[in-house]
């Protein structure tokens, strides 16, 4: 079973390769969109790299729940409804949504996922030590 540090380092490599950023920019607290400049097509690339790095399958909707954010059942006037937030929490137990909940604008969602969230996600799939 890999350590959390080993998982972080593999994710760091995947993000450096996918986004063309420097190692030292990929900190645990860095957000993928705001800090590392990821665009929507990069998420597909990141998923492929993580699958290869960890030998796992990643349904894209688990990490990037576009289906919820574009579903009229969960979104009203550009804001995710309480039901939608509950659905996001269920889908993404590894992500800290507490800040997002205070002002759940759809356009802000992409900016909340951090490198640390990615590490927690991978650890939830493969198990991590430490």
């Amino acid at each position: 079973m890999p350590t959390k540090q080993e998982v972080f380092e593999k994710i760091q490599t995947a993000l450096v390769d996918a986004l063309g950023v420097d190692d030292d920019e990929v900190t645990p607290e860095a957000t993928l969109v705001g800090d590392l400049g990821a665009e929507s097509i990069d998420f597909l690339d990141i998923v492929f790299r993580l699958e290869k790095a960890f030998g796992i399958e990643i349904p894209r909707a688990e990490l990037f729940p576009e289906d919820i954010l574009t579903n009229a059942e969960y979104v009203e006037n550009g804001r995710v409804t309480a039901t939608g937030v509950a659905e996001l929490k269920k889908r993404m137990p590894f992500a800290d949504l507490s800040n997002f909940e205070t002002n759940p604008l759809v356009q802000e969602f992409g900016n909340l996922l951090t490198v640390n969230d990615m590490c927690r996600y991978v650890c939830s799939k493969i198990g991590c030590e430490g």
Binding site: L44, F48, R49, E51, K52
Partner: peptide
């Protein structure tokens, strides 16, 4: 082929 799933590949 480095990685593949039904919605694309790397």
């Amino acid at each position: 082929l480095e990685s593949y799933q039904p919605d694309g590949g790397l």
